[in-house]
């Protein structure tokens, strides 16, 4: 029943998916945190940029963002991400860029909701001790905010894992691309889809369980 799997690098394809997920997760966590910082900052220009970015980017379909990185940035404007002669590396980096840009908006909003759980008195107390805004944010607010948003962040991470499949539209050789190759050759739509669905469940189910446990452990008891 499964002899048609011969000759396909199933694990290799899922490894690319994992790489895409990890790089994009780290990138969007950093960029999303910066955005969240901007959205709560006292500088109107930064607040404006933060909310404009979030509202624009999260409302554009991911497929369009990913396609834009390859067709717009790379093909038209010549942004090759340091890999002009290596299409494989280039599309991978472009896909990470697109995924980071998109998911940072969701990370930002999750984190901002976490910031809102920190009682305002703490920020006022920190201010009255003479801390600057960046110090208030990094020393007092964000550490507590992060602890309360592990659950929502797990949601974003799981969505990100599955959204890496969109990278197939610009030819990143991850799981979804192998799936379309296999369907093209083997005429086994249902079986092949089920195998890949199972593969993704294997990736995301442990993520959800582990982060759910972490979320309970680190939650700030108020």
């Amino acid at each position: 029943m499964f002899d048609f799997l011969e000759g396909y690098d199933l694990l290799g394809a899922f490894w690319v998916t994992v790489q895409l997920t990890v790089y994009s997760a780290v990138g969007s966590l950093i960029w999303g945190t910066l955005l969240a910082g901007m959205r709560v900052s006292p500088v109107p220009l930064m607040r404006g940029f933060g909310s404009a970015y979030v509202n624009v980017v999260r409302n554009i379909p991911l497929t369009i963002i990913i396609l834009f990185t390859a067709m717009g940035l790379a093909d038209t404007f010549g942004v090759t991400m340091g890999a002009a002669d290596d299409v494989k590396t280039r599309v991978f980096r472009l896909a990470v860029l697109g995924l980071v840009a998109y998911h940072a908006a969701f990370v930002c909003e999750a984190l901002r909701s976490g910031i809102n759980t920190v009682p305002v008195g703490q920020a006022e107390a920190a201010r009255s001790l003479g801390l600057r805004f960046t110090q208030v944010l990094t020393l007092v607010i964000l550490p507590q905010a992060f602890r309360s948003v592990v659950g929502p962040m797990a949601n974003v991470l799981i969505a990100l894992t599955k959204n890496t499949t969109v990278a197939a539209v610009i030819g990143v050789s991850e799981a979804a691309l192998l799936m379309s190759e296999m369907i093209e050759n083997e005429a086994e739509l249902l079986l092949i889809s089920a195998i890949f669905a199972f593969g993704f469940v294997c990736l995301t189910l442990p993520t959800g369980l582990i982060l759910g446990w972490v979320s309970k452990r680190v939650a700030v008891k108020r």
Binding site: L67, M71, D75, V87, A168, V169, I170, G171
Partner: peptide
């Protein structure tokens, strides 16, 4: 060869 894969032929044509 450097193979760029896209979701449809029209993307390739524009490239």
């Amino acid at each position: 060869a450097q193979l760029q894969e896209y979701g449809g032929y029209s993307e390739c044509l524009s490239g």
